[in-house]
Simulated scan of single mutants.
Amino acid sequence: MPKNTLNYAVLLVLIAVVAYNSVYFKKLDEVKASAGTTGGSTFNAAAYAQKFWTEKLLPATSNAADLPTLTTLLKTDKAKGFDTYSHALGIGNIRYFLVKGEGKITSVGNDDVSVTLPSGETVKVATEYIFGNAARDASGLIKITEFDNTMDLNNVSAELNSIIRKQVVPSFKASAKPGATVKFVGAIELNREYLHLNNLEVIPISVEVH
Score class of each variant (00 low, 15 high):
residue 49 A to V: 05
residue 61 T to Q: 02
residue 190 L to Y: 03
residue 75 K to M: 04
residue 57 L to G: 03
residue 158 A to Y: 14
residue 45 A to V: 13
residue 167 Q to A: 09
residue 85 Y to V: 03
residue 173 K to S: 05
residue 38 T to I: 08
residue 204 P to F: 03
residue 139 S to D: 04
residue 210 H to E: 12
residue 156 V to Y: 05
residue 106 T to A: 03
residue 59 P to Y: 01
residue 21 N to Q: 15
residue 150 T to Y: 15
residue 63 N to K: 12
residue 137 D to N: 04
residue 31 V to K: 09
residue 192 R to V: 11
residue 91 I to N: 15
residue 3 K to N: 09
residue 1 M to A: 10
residue 44 N to A: 09
residue 145 T to S: 13
residue 96 Y to R: 01
residue 26 K to T: 10
residue 153 L to H: 13
residue 193 E to S: 13
residue 169 V to Q: 02
residue 154 N to W: 11
residue 60 A to F: 00
residue 135 A to T: 12
residue 178 P to E: 01
residue 111 D to L: 04
residue 40 G to H: 04
residue 148 D to P: 14
residue 89 L to M: 11
residue 34 S to T: 09
residue 100 K to V: 02
residue 44 N to C: 06
residue 201 E to V: 15
residue 131 F to S: 15
residue 179 G to P: 12
residue 58 L to I: 00
residue 101 G to P: 05
residue 127 T to Q: 03
residue 21 N to H: 15
residue 135 A to M: 03
residue 134 A to I: 00
residue 45 A to E: 08
residue 2 P to K: 08
residue 82 F to W: 06
residue 76 T to Y: 02
residue 111 D to E: 10
residue 85 Y to T: 10
residue 43 F to Y: 04
residue 116 T to K: 01
residue 136 R to H: 09
residue 139 S to I: 00
residue 131 F to T: 15
residue 181 T to P: 08
residue 97 F to G: 05
residue 34 S to Y: 09
residue 39 G to V: 07
residue 137 D to V: 00
residue 1 M to L: 06
residue 203 I to M: 13
residue 8 Y to N: 15
residue 25 F to M: 09
residue 58 L to S: 00
residue 173 K to E: 10
residue 27 K to Y: 13
residue 166 K to D: 05
residue 59 P to L: 01
residue 152 D to S: 14
residue 93 N to A: 12
residue 45 A to H: 11
residue 92 G to K: 08
residue 38 T to A: 03
residue 53 W to H: 02
residue 103 G to C: 04
residue 168 V to S: 01
residue 19 A to R: 04
residue 123 V to S: 01
residue 38 T to N: 11
residue 158 A to F: 13
residue 188 I to H: 00
residue 73 L to D: 00
residue 80 K to G: 02
residue 187 A to P: 04
residue 106 T to G: 04
residue 138 A to S: 14
residue 160 L to V: 05
residue 119 S to D: 14
residue 74 L to E: 01
residue 24 Y to P: 13
residue 168 V to A: 02
residue 89 L to D: 11
residue 95 R to H: 14
residue 178 P to H: 03
residue 114 S to T: 14
residue 201 E to W: 12
residue 162 S to A: 06
residue 125 V to H: 07
residue 43 F to E: 01
residue 96 Y to K: 02
residue 20 Y to G: 11
residue 144 I to Y: 13
residue 35 A to F: 15
residue 127 T to Y: 06
residue 75 K to C: 02
residue 180 A to C: 08
residue 84 T to N: 07
residue 11 L to I: 10
residue 120 G to T: 06
residue 21 N to R: 12
residue 125 V to F: 09
residue 28 L to I: 11
residue 61 T to M: 01
residue 3 K to H: 13
residue 57 L to S: 02
residue 172 F to Q: 07
residue 20 Y to W: 14
residue 26 K to G: 06
residue 203 I to K: 06
residue 157 S to W: 09
residue 181 T to H: 10
residue 47 A to H: 11
residue 198 N to C: 07
residue 13 V to D: 09
residue 82 F to V: 05
residue 94 I to Y: 13
residue 190 L to K: 03
residue 153 L to R: 13
residue 119 S to C: 07
